[in-house]
């Protein structure tokens, strides 16, 4: 390699440094938010509040990881909030019917798998845009859930199940452990298996992937299946936390998940994304919401701040990409 282009070499190094710096910046932003809130309110840095914050952030974080798989393929999954709500209904009904907890969880996850496969089918076989098929699920799943419960709320009588969300292990809330439980395999999957590579390849150029022997349709099925299973899992976690099943729960969580993913550096054009980015993104959003509550900021402002943050972060990311 005698005639290596020095400029390109620098560019490669700069890019590698950049993605590291980007992650560090996000983490820095998170720490900065914590520092400011710690000074601004006496209640922020309390055990109770921190574990509360971790519980709040955890569920969106898991949704965001699932969403990331889909967005890396240049798709979008708008249904995840509805899947969460629907899953609380499913598991509540199962537990009410006396199904053992482990079986109820497994069945709920399988329902998630079914929803994801349905999305894959709509996209690959029916040729529907991801936006449309998952939008259809968003509205109809809430309807189905309401039909199944006749619009009422099912309360969960299983104490062992509802206690789970309040447990700590090594001083860390159980829900946050669930994030780790999901994120570590997700990281290995995305970065160290061929299916992870295929997700990127399909998001970058499906035709080239196909002509290289990648089964593009299966990759799309996989991405949406994972997103829906993760959402169903979050539904289980939410059910333990609130102790009820109700199809209208988790309203708007799909947007928070997408926002976390985007703040975490995932490109909506596909083929760019990581696991750690969306996780940090989710906790940044959770911190903003938490801090706004503590500071008695009108909750309407939280929504406005989230919107502004998305614009600012993605704008800086665009500047960086253009400058490259």
């Amino acid at each position: 390699m005698a005639s290596v282009d020095v400029a390109t070499a620098k560019a490669v190094k700069a890019r590698r440094n950049y993605s590291f710096l980007f992650a560090l910046t996000l983490l820095g932003l998170l720490v900065l938010l914590w520092a400011v809130l710690a000074f601004a309110t006496p209640n922020f840095l309390t055990d109770k509040n921190i574990s509360n914050l971790m519980r709040q952030g955890s569920m969106i974080a898991i949704l965001a990881v699932g969403q990331t798989f889909v967005i890396i393929t240049a798709g979008i999954d708008l249904s995840v909030g509805a899947v969460v709500g629907f899953s609380t209904v499913v598991i509540a009904l199962l537990l009410q019917a006396g199904v053992p907890v482990w079986a109820a969880i497994l069945i709920t996850l399988l329902v998630g798998l079914g929803i994801g496969l349905f999305h894959g089918f709509g996209i690959t076989r029916m040729g529907l845009p991801p936006f449309i098929i998952t939008l259809a699920s968003l509205t109809s799943l809430r309807g189905i859930g309401l039909l199944m419960t006749n619009g009422s709320t099912i309360s969960i009588q299983n104490d062992a199940f509802t206690e789970f969300a309040t447990l700590d292990f090594l001083g860390i809330p159980s829900l946050f452990w669930m994030v780790i439980l999901v994120a570590v395999p997700a990281y290995v999957f995305l970065n160290h298996t061929r299916w992870g590579r295929y997700l990127f390849a399909v998001g970058s150029n499906p035709e080239s992937a196909r002509l290289s022997g990648v089964r593009v349709n299966r990759v799309i099925y996989l991405a949406y299946a994972l997103s829906s299973i993760f959402a169903a899992f979050v539904g289980v976690l939410l059910a333990t936390r609130i102790g009820i099943g109700n199809a209208t729960q988790a309203e708007g969580w799909e947007l928070q998940a997408i926002a976390s993913t985007v703040i975490g550096g995932t490109s909506l054009f596909g083929a760019v994304g990581s696991i750690h980015g969306p996780l940090i993104g989710a906790f940044i959003l959770a911190t903003i919401n938490n801090g706004a509550n503590l500071l008695n900021v009108n909750s309407f402002w939280q929504r406005i701040i989230t919107g502004g943050l998305i614009i600012v972060i993605v704008y800086f990311d665009q500047l960086r990409r253009r400058g490259r």
Binding site: R197, F200, A201, S204, N205, S208, L211, A271
Partner: peptide, 12 residues
């Protein structure tokens, strides 16, 4: 359009 995944690494 058909041969490369342009915004991915050469190795991939």
């Amino acid at each position: 359009d058909q041969g490369l995944n342009l915004n991915l690494p050469i190795g991939l």
